[in-house]
């Protein structure tokens, strides 16, 4: 049931226990226990909400930053990654294969905030060789959800 349970709550973490139990054909207590286990094992890392900030009056700028670094003896990329992800303004840090090493995403109020972070905090860290900053202009799809999609049932209302 683990895979099914996770794929339901990955899309809708507000679903209630009773409905989960009915849909998965389990007892409510089994669902509660499984969720607890998944939380304890850190399989479930949070119950976030997907927000389309563009529809609000709140300004947000998102940047993807490619970072090239020199890995450190005995610690590989982990140490430098932790120095980056400990900044609260950093949203994601991924180790990447290919032309650069770390992909860092940042969400800030303005372009200037991001520029400040990159030039003053990120670039000045030891072992950072170079950075390349990309700004997101428009989000079409986020976390598997098409942003601002209006689904209409195109089917005939009654078919055999």
């Amino acid at each position: 049931m683990r895979e099914e349970l996770l794929s339901i709550i990955e899309k809708n973490s507000r679903i209630d226990i009773k409905e989960l139990a009915v849909r998965l054909g389990k007892e409510e207590i089994d669902i509660v226990n499984e969720l607890q286990k998944l939380e304890d094992e850190k399989v479930i890392c949070g119950y976030h909400t997907l927000v389309n900030w563009e529809k609000t009056s709140i300004e947000k700028v998102t940047a993807l930053i490619e970072v090239k670094v020199t890995p450190q003896r005995g610690q590989g990329f982990d140490r430098i990654a932790s120095r980056i992800y400990n900044y609260p303004e950093v949203r994601d840090v991924y180790l990447i294969s290919g032309g650069f090493d770390l992909l860092v995403t940042l969400e800030e109020k303005s372009l200037k905030d991001i520029a400040m972070f990159v030039s003053e905090k990120l670039s000045t860290l030891d072992s950072i060789i170079s950075t390349g900053t990309h700004f997101i202009l428009k989000k079409y799809k986020d976390h598997g959800t098409i942003i601002d999609e209006h689904v209409k049932d195109e089917r005939e209302v009654i078919t055999p």
Partner: peptide, 25 residues
């Protein structure tokens, strides 16, 4: 088809919810 007759009634109704289709969503 007996379904046809029913279809005509449903089509008239604007805001009906259908549970009547025989094809995947």
């Amino acid at each position: 088809s007996g379904i046809r007759k029913f279809f005509d009634i449903v089509s008239e109704m604007k805001d009906a919810i259908s549970l009547g289709v025989g094809e995947p969503d």
